[in-house]
Design a protein around this nucleic acid. Structure first.
Lengths: 158, 158
DNA sequence: TAGATCGTTGGTGTACCGCAAACTATTGAT
DNA sequence: ATCAATAGTTTGCGGTACACCAACGATCTA
């Protein structure tokens, strides 16, 4: 029969675990980030922007899988704090090129530093090596491998 | 000096990545789980219950890091579908021992099966080996290693 | 008996977020 | 030049998730 028992090797599902871990991280992160005027969602956006070095808002919405209207609101908050910058694309002046500012990069670094203790707590069961492994797996999975693209016209702006 | 420069090796922070991945998983999971009458939060609870084989509601709230009043609501939903069972602890009749029913275990398995495609998509960048590694890291991190405890009186119920 | 604990209910407030409609600025095609 | 399509923006609606508070009954402990 074609029907293999399926039960053979129940491939482990990470879904619930990721969700669970994310929740624990988020709960703790909120209180740590609050003094910096950031919320978890900001962190993700800033991280993505840093990792890919700029993006159109539409691309950002796609990456974050957020509704574009909410991306606008999110960016408004970040821009009002001078953490990001919206610049018109010279190639297509309808587009906004969103980039991290120096202030934004610095605050992101500070935030990550502040979050160290949170991660230490949540990932206390993991060794440094394991955390690094975890990081690279997550990085790879999230496709933020920064291979190419995202770069067509985000470079020159003298 | 005790003060190492700190800047030496910026240890990678998984926080934002976990959050990001969790979001992507959740978005896709919702539509897959809906036909089964489940939502992501249910999945986590069911998974925890299966992994530790029963728990008091208070312990559950602690594990899920949810407010206990919200746990009640969550369990109400699950119980009304006969996915879990509340039994009074013989040792302390104030306690409810929450356990997965056969129906619940079966539905959980079905849900996980249905979620396979979602995980395949979200983790498409990872090989099977890498996913297994990821799973064990997450499992370890979440402390669901089921070493001991949780067991004091959840065993006997003839 | 008194006080603490577990679960339960109900209500409040907040944050997140998708969706829809309407608008501007800009592009590209005719 | 005109017109449709696109990127971004604003406003508002609705729904979910969730923490927090107060109050209550049942039960355990002292």
């Amino acid at each position: 029969m074609t029907s293999l028992p399926v039960v053979n090797q129940p491939p482990h599902r990470c879904g619930a675990l990721v969700d669970h871990l994310a929740r624990r991280l988020r709960l703790r992160s909120e209180s740590v980030l609050a003094p910096l005027g950031l919320r978890p969602r900001h962190l993700i956006a800033l991280t993505v922007l840093r990792d890919r070095g700029g993006s159109s808002q539409q691309d950002l919405a796609k990456t974050l899988e957020m509704d574009s209207t909410n991306v606008v609101a999110l960016l408004n908050e970040l821009e009002s704090e001078n953490l990001i910058e919206r610049r018109r694309s010279p190639a297509d002046r309808r587009r906004h090129l969103v980039e991290l500012t120096g202030v934004g990069a610095k605050l992101l670094a500070r935030a990550e530093f502040a979050l160290a203790s949170v991660e230490d707590e949540v990932f206390s069961e993991l060794s440094d090596d394991q955390r690094e492994t975890l990081y690279s797996l997550l990085q790879q999975a999230s496709g933020t491998t920064e291979t190419e693209a995202c770069r067509e016209d985000a470079v020159q702006a003298p």
